[in-house]
């Protein structure tokens, strides 16, 4: 859940200007702030350059030392899980505090991931890229779930896509241990909001959010209408109805229905089914009929060729 506007901590939510040198209190690491990258529920993320090098990193300054540390703990645990076959999930570089005036601001430095949010990516490249981005996203989730974690606050803004559909999850502030309560969530993608189940972190919670993200990407206005109705009447039936109405969602609907009802055994199964679905999807590429004039022109040119050959060989 977002916590914007909390009166207790307003003062350090103002962003830090480019050119500021951030020096760690404990380890002395020095980073030059280049620009603002984004804002999560727990803090603000900047693009920074490590002083004296050309290395670029993302640096997150927390609003609250405990909340940020809690997020760091998750990142550390994920780091431990990385193994040879999987992609490196870890991206934690350094953890420290930064003294600004009379305040200590906790921060951590992580790998900088280039890319754009899912919605922007799909608008630019076309909705059919959801096939690939979705597949890669499921792969990431599967790795997370295998380690006993649940992402929680899955939404388009937290999914970063690089040029060829590679996917990176950002903002681990909402990650919870399996079986615990979901720490952060966003209404539209929340199982509880749709009266479809609780907020206990399990793999199915992420599947549900994933499904709503897909619906959001391909049928935003319909989703908006459904979300704005009376809270008591909101249900998964509304989501199913959107799938049936929106032609762009129809190829995905079997998968999506299963995700919404939590019907997969585990995330690997969800991944495999998605994979089968996108490879079998009826290719709707409009086969352009060859125009009549082209056919006759081809026939004439063929005839001329034959004539030409005949004349030369004669």
């Amino acid at each position: 859940m977002k916590e914007k506007g909390c009166s207790v901590t307003t003062s350090y939510r103002t962003s830090i200007p480019a050119g500021t040198l951030v020096t760690g209190r404990w380890r002395g690491g020095r980073y030059l702030v280049q620009r603002l990258l984004g804002q999560g529920a727990n803090g603000i993320v900047y693009l920074v350059q490590q002083a004296g090098t050309r290395n670029l990193y993302a640096l997150k300054m927390g609003y609250d030392a405990l909340d940020l540390q809690s997020e760091i703990n998750v990142l550390k645990a994920l780091q431990g899980q990385h193994n040879a076959e999987d992609r490196d999930l870890s991206y934690l570089v350094e953890v420290d505090d930064f003294t600004l005036g009379d305040r200590e601001i906790p921060f951590y430095v992580m790998r900088y991931v280039k890319g754009e949010p899912l919605s922007k990516f799909l608008t630019r490249r076309g909705g059919q890229w959801l096939d690939l981005a979705g597949l890669n996203l499921l792969k990431q989730l599967a790795a997370l779930h295998k380690g006993g974690w649940v992402f929680g606050d899955l939404k388009p803004d937290n999914v970063l896509v690089s040029a060829y559909g590679d996917v990176e999850l950002i903002d681990y502030g909402g990650v919870s241990q399996n079986g615990r309560s979901v720490k952060q969530f966003t209404e539209w993608y929340d199982r509880g909001f749709w009266n479809a189940g609780g907020r206990t972190a399990d793999a199915a919670y992420d599947w549900f959010s994933f499904a709503v993200v897909c619906i959001h990407m391909l049928a935003e206005s319909r989703l908006k209408t459904a979300a704005n109705q009376l809270p008591q009447t909101r249900s998964t039936a509304d989501l199913v109805q959107i799938m049936n109405q929106e032609p762009r969602l129809r190829p995905y609907s079997n998968w999506l229905k299963k995700a919404i009802s939590g019907g997969f055994e585990h995330t690997d199964e969800a991944y495999e089914m998605w994979k089968r679905m996108i490879s079998r999807k009826p290719v709707r590429h409009s086969v352009r009929r060859t125009p009549g004039w082209l056919k006759s022109a081809f026939a004439i040119s063929l005839f001329l060729l034959v004539c030409a050959i005949y004349l030369t060989l004669r």
């Binding site: 404990w26 405990l66 540390q69 420290d96």
Partner: peptide, 13 residues
């Protein structure tokens, strides 16, 4: 908690 070095803070949190 904020006065602890990051490693110790991690355990407390």
């Amino acid at each position: 908690v904020e006065d602890l070095p990051p490693d110790k803070r991690s355990e407390v949190v």
